[in-house]
Amino acid sequence: MVSTALFFLFAGFAIMCAISMVYHKNPLYSAISLVGVFLSLACIYLTLAAPFIAIVQILVYAGAIMVLVVFVIMLLNLDDEPNTSRLKYLYALGGGLGIVLLAQTLFVVYAVSRTPNQAIDPNVTVGNTLDIGRAMYTDYLLPVEIVGVMLLMAIVGSVVLARRLSQPQLELVIDKEEERISEEINS
């Protein structure tokens, strides 16, 4: 009963935050709304008895990726995006796409709810750290290694991207000040 109420609470919150993310023109408001979606999805994972995935969701998405995104928004000091008039057809395209996808979703829900209800055995939990760790380092060893190599490649790639070709030497104001003072004393 409690988990049902929690599910509908967080599901509503997630949908509201997602809509507000698309609606807001200001990238920072979008980012905050997206963090709301991530947090409510983490709570839904908890009602699905997947605590490890829920916590990793908060740690990776809300705690790392979105912090980086907000950092970039603050660093670039982005303003609201301007209304471009020459891309009107995109709104029609997006609306059509949305309607098609919604119809597809309705069809999936209808089809799944017609099949006999899959009963959950509440004693069987597969989301504990032990289960995930065991599966990860036995059956899924090769994919985990590949993901590790991919993350390394991402690190190298982002360092190459962030490096300017001719790195200007960092000069500190205080050093110049000291130089000036010593010159004054000498002269």
Binding site: F7, A11, A14, I15, A18, I19, M21, V22, V37, I44, L48, G94, G95, L97, G98, L101, L102, Q104, T105, L106, V108, V109, V112, S113, N117, Q118
Partner: peptide, 17 residues
């Protein structure tokens, strides 16, 4: 299961739009 799939579909639609 259908409820979860429905929620997921709605979120995917919003993201795609």
């Amino acid at each position: 299961l259908a409820t979860y799939l429905g929620l997921s579909g709605i979120l995917f639609t919003i993201g795609c739009v």
